[in-house]
Nucleic acid binder design. Sequence first.
DNA 1: CGCGATTACAGACCAACTGTCGGTATAGCA
DNA 2: TGCTATACCGACAGTTGGTCTGTAATCGCG
Lengths: 188, 188
Amino acid sequence: MNLKAERGAATRDRVLAIATRLFADRGYDDTSIETVLQESGLSRGALYHHYAGKEALFAAVLEATERSIGAQIVEAVRGIDDPIETLRAGTLAWIRLAGDPVIKRIVLLDAPAVLGWERWRAMEERYSFGMLKAALQATGAIPAQFLDLHAHMLLAAVNESALLVARGGDHRTAEAAVEEFLRRLLNG
Amino acid sequence: MNLKAERGAATRDRVLAIATRLFADRGYDDTSIETVLQESGLSRGALYHHYAGKEALFAAVLEATERSIGAQIVEAVRGIDDPIETLRAGTLAWIRLAGDPVIKRIVLLDAPAVLGWERWRAMEERYSFGMLKAALQATGAIPAQFLDLHAHMLLAAVNESALLVARGGDHRTAEAAVEEFLRRLLNG
DNA sequence: CGCGATTACAGACCAACTGTCGGTATAGCA
DNA sequence: TGCTATACCGACAGTTGGTCTGTAATCGCG
């Protein structure tokens, strides 16, 4: 179990990279399996051997993207001790990442519609949302009964400002607005 | 120009109602024009005469839904003078409305992905977002430079809590959380 | 080594779907 | 009374996602 497994993994990675680019450029609906096949030089049978279908392929793309985001955010807050400072640094890092059209389109726009809100949330829970909730709890500023809901709302708010930046808004203003937003929430 | 125009309008309305139900039940992707045709008894040519395509049909459904939401929110805040009270009543009304699976699926989940974020935003601007921004401004609690961004973030946060309720969360807790969220934001 | 099992991959094929197009009928209007 | 615009029809084409049978090569085991 070596040569075969490696070849399989390599193929999956290649397809994943190509699919990521296509999904980000054209969106889920306007990306056809046919195109993925052409660009990867793979056959239909091969692709369906590795991925159960278009939706599963998208889910794999999303998972890989989320994982990468998570790693970059962890990196951004490394070495910061103060919880509030961690929260701020993390959210700002996330906003900057979400400026990337790939992330915008795949994670924020298509994912909820394609996978359904439930599965999308479940994945976010394992990545960005989970981190944000922990950081928010660490600040101690939010009563326990509201923690989960406020974490959800805060993440949605931050995502929204990320989308605004991606649309072409000024990212300095957006970052200032997010900091102000955070300040108000934590002071309450 | 009377009998003909009436017939046309009636047909459009009938299709719109059927499409709304189907889009809400199955989502955009899993709703086929074919099904709309069958359920409405209309022919392909007729449908494409009234609506340019599937996306245009969805846009029409969305527009009608947004209009209805707007009217209901206006109704909910009628007679309230205090700006902060207006804002609270409006957001709570919106949360309750968004509990409706039709609204959840069409307006919050599929619309951004189907129409693209830009066109979705443009439509929200004319309805819920426009109203929320005005209400927020009236409270005078948010500095002008952050007004637009904070209105966006607040709406996103409120939408998120509406989605959580729709998933099956306790709506009392959610409403309390939203009120607390608002209080913190406005006090800042 | 040898042989069955598993895995990677190929490509023909199918059912379903969206959108087009030429055509018909009828209401409104000059 | 004819001309135009509108409502509606249904066959058709092109594309799409997914299935299925088949092939080759590698792996694991006796």
